[in-house]
Design a protein around this nucleic acid. Structure first.
Length: 578
RNA sequence: UGGGGAAUAGUGUAACGGUAGCACGAGUGACUCUGAAUCACUUAGUCUAGGUUCAAAUCCUAGUUCCCCAGCCA
């Protein structure tokens, strides 16, 4: 075979040395290229059904498919496998396109649809009838199941299997004309009722569905099954590598059967393990149920593993792509710890998120020796990881809020923050020392701290060289903005919610504390004009994304993820040790 | 009890007969005006049993465990 293939893009690397690079899918593609298959072309596709929103598992597939195309200088189509009008909606098409665009993996922006191939598919079905490879079957749903046999017992042939070509042609045409009610007949492939692979036991090719399709409207009342659509769609599009998940492995012989009977090209199908993440669910059926039963606020609820949910939560496309790269591609069906995902967003946000001071659980501090009328503008660094991010000013005054957790009356060992008599540094401001604790006489709760400051310590250092171990964040009470913050935790309290013991429901494991709204949060005034979608680091707290629910004068933030917190670990160990 | 897949540190993932490596986690320390980030070090693995071979995660045999398939869903 000649090796004069198209060179692909300049970036494509098809040198023999690269033959062992990358994961097994890349290796297969490389092998095919080296063997001169497909005319040296590589083409993939991402084929979602528009029956729900895309989730992080789809992102893995998107990155894989678009990544392979980019690596080998080929193209990747976004094709909607829209063969079931009863479950599919234009709204899902819209959201999927938005999410793929957002992920920024090189999609050209022109979606393809299996429904565009309906007429061709119909003609192919007619062709199979003519060649004696398909027949119209009058068996009911239940009868088809009964005739199919079981995993261990062979099936038996339909009594309608031997209809004449003429009868089949006539019946199939009348199915299309709408003469028969839903479920009354099917078109089936004549494969092998004895096959050990159940997909080969005369599978249904077409079913009657008097339902409006999101694109073809009422043009059709028969619709092809996925198995009779997918391979041919790939073939029409000249896809070379059809990458899908493991459960389609034993459908491959059927695709091959159709393609060979129709004598059309077919791609190499390669199966990989779908993504499973701890503390969440990934099936569209379950996600739909969460939405429909109002366990979440919608497909884009920031607790959802959907791309729109992650986006609203504050995840960036970069962080998701990085995650997909990190977890790899293999055939082992494992479960990835969700902390891997969280680390990816931390890693990216650490690079790009502007720093800001915000107090989630305010405790008032009065600096007794700071003049009542005095106000200062202090300089703060916007992002220590990015010198170009510049500086901003922070108003400082006599009364401030600090984080309640930064004060302890009876501090344990290694607690470096504020306590009676202790000195800490206020970020970008002065050293303060706690002199007195004010309590609510009724509840005994600490409501205020009386402190003094050292005017010589502005800039973070004391002239006498004394050190403080702790630096805490704060906001000026007279300048700070009140905002709402939504704190999220895992949607499910167990690692694998789909693993349900007898008598339990997967919904039993919903985490009742997955959403915690903090109504009384104060942030520095520089945030006044923050826009939805912007992500900030609240120093020492975490990353927070401005939610679209924000209104003028009332910002709403979603906590994307906390910062790593060594103190929390130490504290946990100390309490566990007691 | 049919068919199709898969098993490598806690979790993922490399190693393609020739030193079992990497990331995250976990642990220790350094540094630090974020207990963040950064840096250094440590920890820990080939499902089992046989066999082939100078040499096996890799090849062979037999077992074990897990996942998928009985939609007119995809």
């Amino acid at each position: 075979m000649s090796a004069d293939k198209e060179p692909g893009s300049p970036e494509s690397d098809s040198s023999p040395e690269a033959a062992r690079a990358g994961h097994f899918v890349e290796q297969f593609v490389q092998d095919d290229l080296s063997a001169g298959k497909f005319g040296g072309r590589v083409q993939t596709r991402f084929p979602p059904e528009p029956n729900g929103y895309l989730h992080i598992g789809h992102a893995k597939s998107i990155c894989l498919n678009f990544g392979i195309a980019a690596t080998f200088g080929g193209i990747c189509n976004l094709r909607f496998d829209d063969t079931n009008p009863t479950k599919e909606e234009a709204e899902y098409v819209r959201s999927i396109e938005e999410d793929v665009r957002w992920l920024d993996v090189g999609w050209q922006g022109d979606a393809l649809y299996a429904s565009d191939y309906f007429e061709q598919l119909y003609q192919w079905a007619v062709q199979l009838i003519q060649s004696g490879d398909a027949f119209v079957c009058d068996l009911t749903f239940d009868q088809i199941r009964e005739y199919r046999g079981t995993l261990t017992a062979p099936g038996k042939e339909s009594p309608f299997r031997d209809r004449t070509v003429e009868d089949n042609l006539d019946l199939f045409a009348r199915m299309r004309q709408g003469e028969f009610p839903d479920g009354s007949r099917t078109l089936r492939a004549k494969v092998d009722m004895m096959a050990s692979n159940l997909n080969l036991r005369d599978p249904v090719m077409y079913r009657i569905l008097h339902a409006s399709h999101h694109r073809t409207n009422d043009d059709w009342c028969i619709y092809p099954m996925y198995d009779f659509t997918h391979g041919q769609s790939d073939s029409i599009e000249k896809v070379t590598h059809s990458i899908c998940t493991l459960e389609f492995e034993d459908h491959r012989p059927l695709y091959d059967w159709y393609l060979e009977k129709l004598k059309i090209d077919h791609p190499r199908q390669i199966e990989f393990a779908r993504l499973n993440l701890t503390h969440t669910v990934m099936s569209k059926r379950k996600l739909l149920q969460l939405v429909e039963e109002d366990h979440v606020s919608g497909w884009d609820d920031p607790r959802m593993p959907t791309l729109s949910g992650l986006r609203r939560r504050g995840y960036t496309p970069e962080s998701i792509r990085r995650f997909c790269e990190l977890i790899g591609v293999a055939k082992f069906n494992g479960m990835i710890d969700i902390v891997q995902l969280e680390n990816c967003v931390r890693e990216h946000l650490n690079q790009c998120a502007p720093r800001v001071l915000g107090v989630l659980d305010p405790l008032k501090v009065v600096i007794e020796n700071y003049p009542e009328s005095k106000r200062e503008e202090l300089q703060a660094i916007n992002n220590p990881e990015d010198p170009d991010a510049g500086q901003r000013t922070l108003p400082f005054g006599r009364e401030i809020y600090i984080e309640r957790s930064d004060f302890l009356e009876d501090p344990p060992k290694k607690f470096f923050r504020l306590a009676p008599g202790r000195e800490v540094r206020l970020r970008y401001a002065y050293f303060i020392t706690c002199r007195d604790v004010v309590r609510d006489p009724k509840t005994d709760e600490v409501v205020e701290l009386r402190c003094t400051y050292d005017p010589e310590t502005l800039g973070g250092k004391a002239p006498d060289g004394r050190k403080v171990k702790g630096t805490i964040h704060w906001v000026s009470t007279t300048d700070a903005l009140p905002v709402e913050v939504r704190i999220y935790d895992h949607l499910f309290s167990v690692e694998n919610p789909s693993d349900v013991p007898d008598g339990c429901d997967w919904l039993d494991h919903l985490n009742p504390e997955s959403l915690n709204v903090l109504p009384d949060v104060w942030v520095e005034p520089s945030l006044a004009n923050a826009q939805p979608g912007e992500i900030y680091q609240f120093e020492r707290n975490g990353y927070f994304c401005v939610d679209p629910d924000s209104r003028p004068g009332r910002l709403v933030f979603n906590r994307t993820v906390t910062l790593r917190d060594r103190w929390a670990k130490i504290e946990k160990r100390q309490t566990a040790g007691k």
